[in-house]
Amino acid sequence: MICKYRCGNIAYAVFWKNKIICLNLLGIYLTLLGVVTNMEQNQFVKGSLVTIIMKLLEDNGRMYGYEMTKAVRDITANRMHITEAALYPALHKMEADGMLTATTEMADGRMRKYYTLTKKGKKETVSKIQALKDALDSVQLILNTKTANG
């Protein structure tokens, strides 16, 4: 059965046979509902991928695709990793939306594309990170509170 779960105005996900088939930018809210019981961390990352990319670029100035995947793996001690299938569409979309600019340079005998946040991207980063933090705080609240029916 296909189910669509929506939280607030910006987060929703579509499931089929208990597997996520579509996840929006801040799908992290989903755990609030307790719907996603056996979601892997990778799928969890996908929901907040744009925010993760923005945060990495804010801290490092400019980065290339592989550097981002490696940074996520290193920071999380291999507990999370970004797949290419998720990373590149996100980067291309952010570039098309004017959040990032890409510059190409020769590095180690091959062309390398470096991504940098634009002014618009820098502004968005602040609000996106705040939204993610708020969501995580809410998750924490629910996880730490014992709820009872009635």
Partner: peptide
């Protein structure tokens, strides 16, 4: 490690956004 779709995921994304760029 690129997954079952291999390099295709990168190409597919590039196709979509290049086309979108030219549409714009």
């Amino acid at each position: 490690e690129f997954g079952y779709s291999g390099f295709y995921s990168i190409k597919a994304s590039l196709d979509v956004f290049t086309r979108r760029r030219y549409k714009r």
